[in-house]
Every structure is written in C-alpha cells, then in structure tokens.
Simulated assay, not measured.
Amino acid sequence: MGGEGENMTEDAKDPVTYEFRDGAAWITLADAEHGNALNEVGAAALWRAIQRARADRAPVVVLSAEGRFFSVGGDLASFAAADDVSAYIDDLADALHRIVSELMRLDAVVISVVRGTAAGAGFPLAAAADLVLAARSARFTLGYTKVGLTVDGGTSLLSATLGLHHALHLALLNPVLSAEEAHRAGLVAQVHDDDELDAAVDRVVAQLVTGSHAAQVTVKRLLRGAATPAPETALRREALAIREAAARPDGQEGVRAFLEKRTPVFPGDR
C-alpha cells in the first residue's frame, strides 16, 4: 500500500508520476517535453501507476498531465525508428488497450483532467475515464487518418458516447473540438476556466471520496456494461486494423510526412 503523498519513483524524468492523497490516486503524464507522447516506456509507466492505484484500493483515480498537452497521441518518432513498424504499433496498441480496459473496469471512479490538446490516442485515453473535466483551453482531435492510420485506443467506443455519425465525423474529417463543443457532445462532464480547474477537480474528488464507493462502482459497471458490453473485442479489432494500416504505403508515407513536417502524398494501393 502506498503512503500519503508518496511518489512512485524518485526519477524526475519518469514519464508518469503517482501520488496517493486525499483518499484518491493521482496519476500524472509527466513527459511534457515530448507532449506526453505515448510510446512503450510511457505505456509501461502508466500501467504500473494504475496497478499502484489498484493496490492502494483507491476509490477515485485522477488522470492528468503536465505541460501544454494532455497527450499528442502516439510517438510517431518511435514508430519510424522501429525495425518492424507494424509489429511495434501492434504491441503499443495492445499495451494502450490494456490500460484503457483497466481504467474502464477498475473498481474506482476514474476522472481525466484535460488541459491543452488531447490528440490521437490521447483523445480516447481521456475518454476512457468515467468523468472528463476540462479546462476552457482544452481541445480534442483524432488525426489518425491524416497520417494514413486507423484509429486505436478505444476510439471506436466513442460511438457509444457521441453517437455513430459524430464519431465518424471526428475520425474521418479530424476536426478540433473545443472544450465547450466536447461538453455539448456529451464527452466532457464539466468545463472550467483554466485557473479554476484544479479547485473544481478537488471538489469532485471530495464528493466522490465521501460518497458510497460500493454504489458508485456498481453504477459504473451497470452503465458501462450497457453502453459497451464487449470493449476488449472492439479494442482488439482496432489493434489489428492499425497494424495493417502501418504496414501499407499510405501509413508509411503519413508517418514520414508528419516527421518531415510536410503534407503527405498518399500513394494508395498503387
């Protein structure tokens, strides 16, 4: 069991930090220098933090991030550096999907706190929480098809939250949703001015921690079971699809173009 205020690691460069305080587990994506991009190291650290929250029997888990981004999504530089990019992405998607599944099934109310941009896999990672609290500066965008890739991280599960056609709009045209738009769409529970968000999160955590944990967890299971009865099946379909996309010429060109900061020219199947 972790002690109050105990950090998960002494290493200031660890991409994820953990603290148990005020009766809740506080998990922070802490690789602000790289926009909290998701790679094997970060996914492993996030998984360890979630398991720490489980061991601490935290009734509430708060997932937030340092810096200007909640997360820019997958670390495309690590994709390009991999010897077998499709296998690497498949492994990374599986690691991310294990995290998403765990957050959905955790015996705790999970809160994500979004400042700045949640892009790519950062979007469905934020949405894996039971409650999403956003700063007015928050932005949400997918962007997978812009680089020739298919969605992962539980993006297909957004159809249960947002509706099929809104999810298709986000996935195919890659618009950027403001915090207010995400609130109107039903994704974000509360929007607050940036300088008021921390206090709002503290209030929500205090309300949950002093409430009936058994009732809260049962409600979470009932509603999630009705909305997404087989999330792991959807997550595995996403992993297989993005692995295939990464091996195709369009996916390879999309990643190269992103890293070279140019507009991709997709060759298609030609």
Rank of each mutant, 00 (worst) to 15 (best):
P249Q: 15
A239S: 12
P249T: 14
T233K: 13
L259K: 13
A227G: 04
P231F: 00
R237P: 00
A226D: 05
D250Y: 00
P231G: 01
E260A: 15
G225N: 00
R248G: 10
P249K: 14
P264V: 06
A257Q: 02
A247D: 14
E232C: 02
T228V: 09
F258R: 11
P249D: 14
E244C: 01
R248P: 07
A246W: 00
R236F: 07
A227K: 00
T233L: 13
E238W: 05
A257E: 00
F258E: 13
R236K: 15
K261T: 14
D250W: 01
T263F: 08
L259R: 12
E232W: 05
A227I: 04
I242D: 01
T233C: 09
T263W: 07
A226M: 07
A234Q: 12
V265Q: 15
R243D: 02
T263C: 01
E238I: 08
L259T: 13
E244A: 13
K261Y: 14
I242V: 12
A246I: 09
P231W: 03
E244M: 07
A247M: 12
R236Q: 15
L259S: 14
V255C: 08
A230H: 15
G251P: 03
L240A: 10
R248A: 07
G251H: 02
A230P: 11
A246F: 01
T233F: 12
V255D: 06
V265E: 15
P249E: 14
G225P: 05
P249R: 13
E260L: 13
R236H: 14
G254P: 02
R248N: 10
A257T: 03
D250S: 10
A241Y: 06
D250Q: 06
K261S: 15
R243A: 13
G251I: 03
G254A: 08
L235G: 03
A239T: 10
A245N: 05
R236L: 12
E260P: 13
P231C: 01
T263K: 10
R243E: 11
F258C: 09
E253T: 13
R243T: 06
L259W: 11
A247V: 10
P231S: 02
V265S: 15
P264C: 02
R256Q: 15
A246P: 04
E253Y: 04
A227P: 04
A239C: 06
E260V: 05
E244I: 00
L240D: 11
R256L: 13
R243P: 02
P229Y: 07
D250E: 00
P264Q: 04
E253N: 10
